[in-house]
Design a protein around this nucleic acid. Structure first.
Lengths: 233, 233
DNA sequence: ACTTAAAAATTGGTTGACCAATTATTGGTT
DNA sequence: AACCAATAATTGGTCAACCAATTTTTAAGT
């Protein structure tokens, strides 16, 4: 019976449009920063009315995958998490005990992502992680804070791990925690250098294909977040 | 500058409607399981057209907070950790399901749940897990298959672990995997006895407050699932 | 008073027309 | 050929009317 319910949902036009837009993006037909075809064109192509397309786009905006620019077009987001900022804490109103559970679960997922990255990473992944780390260092050197660049580095690790479910789960909870921790933490040169050094250690262990070392480096990096969050109670 | 952008967004009618619907739920004015006022009434009350209300409701559906029943009304699922399962489920729907990634992620979550259960379980938890195991054994003895009872045992372990986020994630991915594995597996007396014995070992380690032993017992239990999945590819 | 069927009202779903803002094209000038 | 202003086309945003399904109300029968 539950299976029948799922099947019906999968046939809903909006979900089908979401799946097809996702395929456009995954296949590289439309790249980050580029515009999707206009709503009317998509509606024509899918054989549905514009409302369906608008609803699909609106939902994909929640996921951070698309960004709508009125009277101009709909752009594909590069890292897919911009709109997820504050998603969990603000919208869902997570209680304190549940927030601690979020932090602990994030640590579990991130350590596993680092371990898998050390096992499964390839040369392209290393370039991506390295580039993300450089962006992070550059921003940190300038501002002592670098939320999006911090997230991007963690996302690149998850991608190198090659487990899409793990990555999706991390995408739900990591942005919120990174943001709230960064907002409250003291941002100075010492803390910035510590973060940079920790990120470097993680990437080094992943490059060296050392799963246990990567887990340990990630643990060191996250311990401060964990202690800080527990202290808040 | 990014801050200014956020401020503009906060004034957008759809976001305001989302905030007000959230407040209705948080304040207890509308409780989980109850219906929101109809779209037309909400639109009138907020002084906007129905499209705005529909868009807000559609987004809150993505967050897992609301569930729309066509021609009937819009029901409140809940807010906080209750909604998280819906959100996780919706986000996972966007990705193409990689069964191996699901199985590996489930293994990670279940091992951690067992570890936390060994640490955090109390006397009530032990009773619940023990009762669930008895139900499982009774069904297995009779039918050699016991999907719901199997699942209940795993849920009780997650509850004993006292991490609500972990439990939510498990609730999303464990049922499908238990179900599909059980469907394909040979169900006979030997396999039934093996499953029973494995469940007993897990509970014993949890009772004994042995986190590492619990992780190992869960690993043994899940290795068969993992190997089976890898063989399928 | 209770039950049942039919009618009416209400509900979310869908559509095409219109609106305001942006982008592309056209025509004129240097 | 390059530049600029005006015009036209295109874009996402908004709206009211209509549709199909569910719920509520009404009327008739026992």
């Amino acid at each position: 019976m539950l299976e029948n319910l799922n099947k019906i949902q999968l046939q809903n036009p909006v979900d089908q449009i979401i799946a097809q837009i996702r395929d456009l993006i995954i296949s590289g037909t439309v790249k980050p920063g580029e515009k999707l075809p206009p709503e009317r064109k998509l509606a024509e192509h899918f054989g549905v009315s514009r409302s369906h397309v608008r609803e699909a786009i609106s939902k994909l905006q929640v996921y951070g995958i698309l960004k709508v620019q009125p009277q101009s077009g709909t752009i594909v987001n590069g890292i897919g998490i911009v709109a997820l900022e504050g998603l969990i804490s603000n919208v869902l109103k997570i209680e304190k005990t549940d927030f601690n559970a979020l932090v602990d679960t994030r640590a579990l997922l991130e350590k596993e992502a680092a371990r898998l990255a050390a096992i499964n990473r390839n040369a392209d992944d290393l370039v991506e992680m390295h580039n993300a780390l450089e962006l992070f260092e550059k921003k940190m050197a300038k501002d002592h804070v670098a939320i999006e660049e911090d997230l991007l580095f963690h996302i690149k690790i998850a991608e190198a791990g090659k487990n899409s479910v793990l990555k999706s789960m991390m995408m739900i909870i990591t942005p919120d925690i990174v943001k709230s921790f960064t907002t409250l933490k003291v941002c100075n040169k010492d803390n910035a250098n510590k973060s940079i050094s920790q990120h470097r250690n993680i990437l080094e262990r992943i490059s060296a294909q050392d799963p246990e070392g990567a887990v340990e480096a990630m643990k060191v990096h996250l311990d401060e977040v964990i202690q800080f969050s527990k202290k808040k109670s």
